[in-house]
Design a protein around this nucleic acid. Structure first.
Length: 430
RNA sequence: GGAGGGGUUCCCGAGUGGUCAAAGGGAGCAGACUGUAAAUCUGCCGGCGAAGCCUACGGAGGUUCAAAUCCUCCCCCCUCCA
């Protein structure tokens, strides 16, 4: 229970986290009355999590805030196998070293969201127990509890049966089930949560634990997010939106969220911010372009959670500067710490490259410059951009593809480049 | 192990000797319209400052003036049989 008197179940439910639960009533009362240890697995298949993992992360945050005891399980062991759920193709099998390195990085990342202080939350790696398993013993003790018939009926496998599924992937379910059993036995974990594609794996773990321990445990899944347009979350022109500031800058992260489609704003505020639901409901009254204020708050709060208040303010400042973002009125989202005036503007988050005066001497053809500062992936693309009228220098459209940009364009030691309406780049001249 | 079908550009997918940087769709980029939204319409969509050249149709060789297309070997995937 948190201060508001809401149980974790209520919180998760009203914020839109819950897609399916194994047993609604028992889970509700459990979360109301006891300190529940729950877990979610995170795949260390990359060195950073991306926003696809944000729903699970936020769910653990809420669990912790409500006084429960989350376990974030890094799947160092299961990643050696590769989860086939929701995939149409087998994924590349990573080496042990790659996975270990990724697991380490992900641990650090999760620490930004959850307090792993003594007794508050745990961060475990299933390689610690899975890697030690003995094949024959495992088959005898665990394998015998699984019905191949039932496994084949699982949604996650059925899709793959059409294109092919090999034995290593087929075993993934057993290992994840074993994780749940292991965490239940050794850590008292009785609830596993995850994306809805994990339903089959979660249920299998519950069955296994019932058979081995005669203990009833539970599962909860989250909706798999797509935007209202059915697009996958977290993909932009620059690729995946990562949680690591080195891979996706706070500025780009902020931009990703502020570009949320109208229809998704309310849902996303519930899932990706910690603002009270009552305030989020208020935002329903916003119509048309007023909705952009709610988007600004969403972007600000989401950036704050991942990158901190300072980075969020800087990203917001850059948005005010570049896009004329309007301040959010004080009576909207009173809990948000978004700046309400542009008085103390900090635009330092605009992407910047450094150049010396000497480099600009004589001028650089515009298309080369756009390529050089990474606004365009190739010179050809830069040429097309300019020809199509999408390139700007200090707000002025570039008309000739090889127009020389140089000292003459420096204003206040800066040259401001823009690609289309949204992508800005400042050249700071020293 | 045997028989058959496949592996094409970011993804799906057409192409089966020159007209192929490769149809079509999706994604993406830009423009118009807007509200940094959606929808719609238009243009673009391998690289190189033009001609032209280079790189690309699983991998390695070969045939040919010419190969994504034909031949040989290899790798991988699927289906049926064992």
């Amino acid at each position: 229970m948190n201060m508001s008197g809401k149980s974790a179940y209520d919180v998760l439910y009203e914020r839109g986290f819950i897609e399916q639960v194994t047993d609604e009533e028992p889970i509700q009362s459990l979360l109301e009355k006891e300190t529940v240890t729950c877990y979610i697995g995170f795949d260390p298949t990359a060195a950073s999590l991306h926003i696809g993992s944000l729903v699970p992360i936020m769910s653990l945050v809420h669990m912790q805030r409500c006084g429960h005891s989350p376990i974030a399980l890094v799947g160092g062991g299961t990643a050696l196998i590769g989860d086939p759920s929701g995939k149409t193709e087998m994924r590349r099998i990573l080496t042990r070293d790659e996975i270990d390195a990724n697991a380490e990085a992900i641990k650090k990342q999760l620490s930004q969201y959850l307090d792993f202080g003594e007794g508050k939350a745990l961060l475990l790696n299933n390689a610690d127990w899975l890697a030690k398993l003995n094949y024959v013993e495992f088959l005898r003790d665990i394998g015998r509890c699984f019905s191949v018939n039932r496994m084949l009926a699982a949604e996650s496998y059925r899709i793959r049966l059409e294109t092919g599924l090999n034995f290593i992937e087929f075993n993934y379910m057993l290992l994840q089930s074993y994780d749940f059993y292991y965490l239940c036995k050794h850590y008292g974990c009785i609830l596993q949560m995850g994306g809805n594609d994990q339903w089959g794996n979660i249920v299998a773990g519950i069955d296994l634990t019932r058979r081995l321990e005669e203990k009833k445990i539970y599962g909860m899944t989250f909706p798999l997010l797509t935007t209202s347009q059915g697009h996958k979350m977290g993909k932009t022109e620059k690729g995946t939106v990562w949680l690591d500031a080195a891979l996706t800058t706070p500025y780009d992260y902020f931009q990703y969220w502020i570009n949320t489609e109208d229809a998704d704003v309310k849902r996303f505020l519930g899932l990706f911010t910690l603002l009270p639901v009552e305030e989020i409901k208020e935002s329903e009254k916003l119509v048309d372009s007023e909705l952009n204020m709610a988007k600004a708050v969403l972007a600000f709060e989401a950036t704050k959670i991942t990158h901190g208040q300072g980075a969020a303010i800087a990203a917001w400042g850059a948005a005010v500067n570049n896009f004329g973002l309007k301040p959010v009125s004080p009576n909207l989202f009173p809990s948000s710490s978004i700046p309400r005036t542009s008085a103390d503007l900090d635009a330092s988050a605009i992407p910047t490259v450094e150049k010396t005066r000497a480099e600009l001497e004589g001028g650089i053809p515009a298309f080369e410059l756009f390529y050089d500062v990474d606004l365009c992936a190739s010179k050809g693309e830069a040429r097309r951009l300019i020809v199509q009228g999408g390139a700007y220098v200090n707000g002025r459209q570039v008309e000739v593809f090889d127009e020389k940009i140089g000292e003459g364009n420096i204003e206040n030691s800066e040259i401001h480049l823009r690609k289309g309406k949204k992508q800005h780049m400042v050249i700071r001249v020293s």
